[in-house]
Structure formats: structure tokens, C-alpha cells
């Protein structure tokens, strides 16, 4: 009984908040072009569901492309940094600098240089999201148990063998943690990049729909797009968490 209560608690809480929101909007007579109630948002979504779903798909495509690129880049750099103290010293400060540079500043420059909308958005989103994967995987590689490293050495393992058979598999749990964090960052990156740089040519994503609805004063539609974005973020986080759970379970059973 308690487990059941635990499961439905977030849903129950959500329903209560939505009901309170709708009542507040009714009671204060707030017009829907200032703050729409949940019902207005739902109807706005239903009216433009085709367009909003296509926008969601577009944003998700950029997000997943960026996540894949971030995973590749993060792992490659982590391996490079683990292999050589010189490479580590060379790469580390640049990785950190790239991470803290505000995307709003560099996104327009990237759009200018790359000149292809999809690629530019993916690059922006990758820049924001690769660092957690890099940092976590590097930590995992560094934490490879010393005794196992000795064992490999005693059995004459080559550096490749040690990397592929010991270090990388050993770092998989850390990598998955980094991936989970990076998933939502990639979504944020895709949205910010689109906001800042504008999109065109490639099918518009949710960020553009939010802006467009704002300019056209279609406020309930704007909120509907934002809700979709939030749901997408939650779904990505849950999916990556689920992936982490499944992989780790299979690993050790």
C-alpha cells in the first residue's frame, strides 16, 4: 500500500497544483494572454498539435545528435587525458574554458562560421553538454583499481588491452552518470542555441515556436510549447536514468 502511495504521490501533487492554478486564474480573472490556465494551454496544444509535435521532434533530433557527439568527444578526450599527463595538462584548461563560456555569446559566431543550421545547433548543444561526460569518464578512468592495473601489467597486457579490457569497462558506471547529466544539458543547449541564433532552413524547433508565439501574442500556445519542452526534459532524464539502471544491472548479475 505504501509503495503504491509513493508511486502516485508525484501525480497526485501535480494534479493538485494544476487544479489550484486553474482556480487561481478563474478567480482573479487573469486574461489568458497574460497567464493562461492549464485548460487554455491544453486547448492551445490541441489546436496546433501537428506544428508543436514537429517542432518537438526537430528539437529532440538536435538534442540526440548533440548527445551522441558529446559522448564521443567526452570519452575520446577522457581517454587522451588518462593516457598522457602532457595531454591532460594541455586539454584540461581548454575544456573548462569552453564549458564556462556563455553559449549566448558564442552561438551567433558559430552560426556564422558553420553556415549550416542543423550542424551549428548541434555544435552549440555539444559544447554545453560534453563536459560532464568528460569529467565523469576521466574520474572513472582514474579510479581504475590499482591492483587490477598491476594484474594486467603482470600478465604482459599491452596499453590497448588495458584500455579496452580494463579501464573503459571500469569507467562505464561513471560514463553513464555523466551521460544522464549531459542529456538535459544537450536539450538546454539545443533550445538556447535556437533562441539566440534563430533557426531557419532546417525545420523549426520548440524554441522558435516559443518565440514566434510570443511575437504573435499567442500566449497559451507559447506556454504549451514550454510545457512540451519541460516534459521532454523529464523524459530524457528518466530514459537515461533507466538506461543506466539496466546496463548496471546486467553488468553485475
Amino acid at each position: 500500500m505504501n509503495r503504491l502511495l509513493e508511486r502516485i504521490a508525484p501525480v497526485g501533487f501535480g494534479v493538485a497544483v494544476l487544479a489550484a492554478w486553474q482556480c487561481a486564474v478563474w478567480a482573479t480573472g487573469t486574461p489568458k494572454y497574460v497567464v493562461p490556465g492549464p485548460w487554455d494551454i491544453v486547448t492551445a496544444y490541441a489546436a496546433s498539435s501537428g506544428e508543436l509535435n514537429a517542432a518537438l521532434l526537430s528539437t529532440l533530433t538536435v538534442t540526440f545528435a548533440a548527445l551522441a557527439a558529446a559522448a564521443f568527444l567526452g570519452v575520446v578526450l577522457a581517454v587522451a587525458m588518462a593516457a598522457s599527463v602532457l595531454l591532460r595538462a594541455a586539454i584540461q584548461p581548454w575544456a573548462v574554458a569552453l564549458q564556462v563560456t556563455p553559449l549566448v555569446a558564442i552561438a551567433p559566431l558559430i552560426i556564422l562560421w558553420v553556415n549550416q543550421a542543423f550542424a551549428a545547433l548541434v555544435i552549440c548543444a555539444t559544447i554545453i553538454s560534453f563536459f560532464p561526460i568528460l569529467a565523469n569518464t576521466a574520474a572513472g578512468l582514474a579510479q581504475t583499481p590499482a591492483a587490477l592495473l598491476d594484474l594486467f601489467k603482470l600478465n604482459g597486457a599491452s596499453r590497448w588491452q588495458t584500455l579496452l579490457l580494463l579501464r573503459l569497462p571500469s569507467a562505464v558506471p561513471n560514463f553513464l552518470t555523466g551521460l544522464r547529466i549531459s542529456g538535459t544539458l544537450a536539450l538546454v543547449g539545443a533550445v538556447v542555441a535556437e533562441f539566440v541564433a534563430g533557426s531557419g532552413g532546417f525545420a523549426s524547433g520548440l524554441a522558435y515556436r516559443i518565440l514566434e508565439a510570443g511575437y504573435r501574442l499567442e500566449i497559451p500556445k507559447m506556454f504549451a510549447a514550454m510545457v512540451l519542452l519541460a516534459l521532454a526534459g523529464v523524459a530524457i532524464y528518466a530514459a537515461l536514468g533507466g538506461l543506466e539502471y539496466l546496463v548496471l544491472r546486467r553488468r553485475e548479475r
Binding site: A147, L148, D150, L151, F152, G156, L165, L166, V172, R251
Partner: peptide, 22 residues
Amino acid sequence: FQDATLLPWASALENVALPLKL
């Protein structure tokens, strides 16, 4: 070693076969 230091993702057979694989 003092700690068994087995590869947690591999079976007992795979762990024992590891030196030969290397």
C-alpha cells in the same frame, strides 16, 4: 592480492581466463 580484485562485469570463468586472454 589482499582484495580478490575480480572484474565485476565478468563471470568467474571469464575472470580466471583473463591472464590467458592477455
